[in-house]
């Protein structure tokens, strides 16, 4: 299982890109953190989520 924003999900073996494609996140408005480190945008395609990973997807909304 992979924990995404506090929720356990059965997505081990899936890449970050593949996971995001099934969500409503807009790639230009997010940052992805995995196990304490940022996942750089250019590696979303290669980064495979593993059992036990803890992921946070930070989604930006407008205003400032």
């Amino acid at each position: 299982m992979v924990k995404v924003n506090g929720k356990e999900m059965d997505i081990s073996g899936v890449t970050v890109s593949e996971y995001l494609a099934g969500t409503e996140y807009e790639p230009a408005r997010i940052a992805v953190e995995k196990n304490g480190d940022i996942v750089v945008k250019s590696s979303y395609d290669e980064t495979v989520l593993q059992d036990g990973d803890v992921v946070e997807i930070v989604s930006f909304v407008g205003g400032g």
Binding site: E26, A31, V40, K41, F60, G64
Partner: peptide, 16 residues
């Protein structure tokens, strides 16, 4: 910044 895309751009750029 004001725009969500600009926020995303800067944060990812700096962290990377």
């Amino acid at each position: 910044f004001d725009a969500a895309e600009e926020k995303g751009m800067l944060v990812n750029y700096v962290l990377e």
